[in-house]
Each structure stands twice: as C-alpha cells, then as structure tokens.
Simulated scan of single mutants.
Amino acid sequence: MRIFVSSVRKGLEEERDALPGFIRALGHTPVLFEDFSAQPTPSREACLKALDSADVSVFLLGPSYGHVFQETGQSATHDEWVAAKTAGKPRWVYRKQGVTFEDAQQSFARDVEAYATGVFRDSFKTTAELMTKLAEKVNELGSMPSPLSFAPLTQPVSLQWSLDEAGVEGGTPIPLVELHVLPVGFTGHSARQLEELSTSLADRIRQTGAVNDNASLTLSSSQAHATVSIPLTRPHRWDDPRPGEPVEVCLHKTGQVSLRATLPRDGMGSILDQDALPRQISALLRFIGALNLIQHERIVVAAGVSAPRHTQLDRFNPHQSRTRAELSAYTRSFTLQTEPDESISLAALDTGSDEVAKPLARALIKQHPSGA
C-alpha cells in the first residue's frame, strides 16, 4: 500500500523525518515530496500525481498553513486535501497538540474537521504517539464498515433535469451523463447566498483539480441557478478515444447541484460501458463533494443520460478506437433516468461514492433497450 503524507514541513520536521522509515517498517510505501527527484513537471502537478498514485493520504495539521500559491489561492496541503477528497482517497487526519495554529491554518482545520463535509480526526503530542496511532489505523483499514446510511423518503423530491439538452459537437448530438444531488430538508439559498456562491463557483471547480488549469470556464446565472460551462479537451484526431469529461456544473437556488459530462467515446460514438460507467459516476459524485456546496447530512442522488439513442452498450478502450459498432435501430424514444426513493448520508459524495455509483450505473444500463 502506498501512503501519501501531506503537511507543511515547518513545525512538523521530526514527524516527517520519522514517518518514511516507520511506514516502510509496516510493510508499506511512503510517498513524501522530500523523496521526489528532479522532474520536468511543475511541483504542484508532481505532488498531485504522486497523491493520485497513493492508496491512502495522511494529513498532519501543525501550526503553519504554508505558502499560498497564486494559481489556487491556497497552500499545497490544502490543494492536496481537495484532490484527495475529489479522488475518493481515504484521508487520515492527525492534529498536533500543544502548538498555536496560524489563523489560516485554523480556518483550514475547521474545513477538514467540519461535521458534514470533513472527517473525524485524531490528535498527537509526540512523534511516538503519532506512529502508534498510524499503525492502528493501517491495521483497521481492511475491516472498515460502509460509511453510508440509507433511509426511505417520506415524500417525493423535485429535481431539475436537463435530459432534453444534449451536447453538440460538429453538428452531431453528444449524449451526456448527468448527475443530480439535492440536500434533503434544505430550504434553499437566498438570492444573496446564490450570488455569492455563483461568484466562487468557477474557483471551486478549479480547486478540485478535475479540470485543466488553463480551461476557459464560462459563468452564466439567473435568479434560479448559476451554471459554469467547461470546454471539452480536444483530441489529436476526431476519432481518438476520449474518456468522459465534465462539461457543466449547475447550482440551483433549491440547493441542488447538477453535473453533466460526456460519456467515453471514440470514432464510432458514445459508449455505455458497464465497467467504465460506475467509475465515472463515482468520480462525478466526488467532484460534487469537492465543490463543498452541500453540507446537509442527508441527500438524494439521481442520474440520467441525454440523447440515449446515440449511445451503444459496448466496451471502451482508451488506447484504440472501435472499427465497428451497432448503430441504433430503435424507432421509439426511450429514456435513461433514475428516480430516487431514499436519502443517503453525505458520505455518498466521498468515501461512499463507489457504493452509490454501482446501482445507478446498473439501472441506466438496464433501461437501455440493448441491456434489457
């Protein structure tokens, strides 16, 4: 198991020096920026790439927040926290006692420890105590229960859908998978709150690390919602295989957050892959969670696919485009859409995303005429 250690070095020098050897002694691989050799990629990109390769991320909260980078407006540790949350990595947080936190670090700690959107953290006074607690956590990892809880809805919920609005590229409809998350029992945002959140929406999207730093994000807003459009990444050739990618984030006044993304596709069209679709939905759930727009403990989740007649049930190969595909022979219209009948705990947008994504993906594929 690869264990990524994230923290500012200042004020945690002894802990960072001790952990690599200790993690190796436990039979696992430590990943720290001190071990990085010279690389052609920017430091931030290298750190996030290393984090992505890890199985678990350990966050040490000491007195210092760290250098604030102009690109993100936050520290490297804060960047790594958001990236780990977006990627659905297990995050273990240990807060050092007996030290005074800087104001920025105190604010970051509040985000990390927030009841609805953060994680429970432990604390330590000495390096020896930290290592003992880390060893216990490593041993617990294999027997952790599901973080989710479910409850039947007492009354139907009203969701805003966009299934009649397919994407278009080169005059051709592009099916989009859309995911909707609505906090249960939330009274909605005031006009002032919606405006404030609209202003920060593009920055929140960039901070997730899920879109290119150079992507030109476009904001549009009304009294009912705020929407940020994300440009598609252009392939080298029109028929190059392309994984699904987000194209739109919408925050509704009701509190609903909606995310639309392309499906995996190649020169033969868009693909509903029984293995790739749950992974994509899980990633989209974590993306929504990383935006930090929903803090209610109970939510409902629904998914759908626009223009489903332009999809095929098939296998997506990211390295090679298909040479044949079954073209749609369906004359009648059909929809791919789930309707929630239960609420889920907020862990669905984090560590429980895989468990939630699988039945959503199965339901969509089952509704497709080829999957019936």
Rank of each mutant, 00 (worst) to 15 (best):
D122Q: 15
D103W: 06
F150N: 00
A307K: 08
I205R: 11
T227P: 01
K85R: 15
S270F: 04
G62Q: 06
A348P: 05
A363Q: 14
C47Q: 06
A135Q: 12
A302Q: 13
P264S: 09
L349G: 02
E129V: 11
A261M: 10
Q207W: 10
L159T: 06
V138R: 03
K137R: 15
V56T: 09
F186P: 00
Y94G: 01
T262F: 00
A87H: 15
K96L: 07
P63E: 00
P231T: 01
V249Y: 05
L272W: 13
L48Q: 04
S123M: 09
A18Q: 10
T199D: 15
L134S: 03
T262W: 13
G98P: 01
A226L: 12
D103N: 09
L26T: 07
P40D: 14
L194F: 09
S328C: 06
Q160V: 14
G371V: 08
S353K: 07
A104Q: 14
L277Y: 10
G244T: 06
K133N: 10
R95D: 03
L364K: 05
S143W: 10
V211R: 03
E71M: 11
N292V: 03
L232Y: 13
L61E: 00
D350N: 03
P246E: 06
A210V: 02
S107W: 14
S64Q: 12
S37Q: 03
H236I: 04
G88I: 08
V68N: 00
E71D: 15
P235G: 14
D273G: 07
V8W: 07
A325K: 05
K358G: 00
G170D: 11
A215D: 10
R9C: 00
H67W: 12
D35G: 12
R298L: 13
L60C: 02
Y115S: 11
G118N: 00
D164W: 11
D314E: 08
S328M: 07
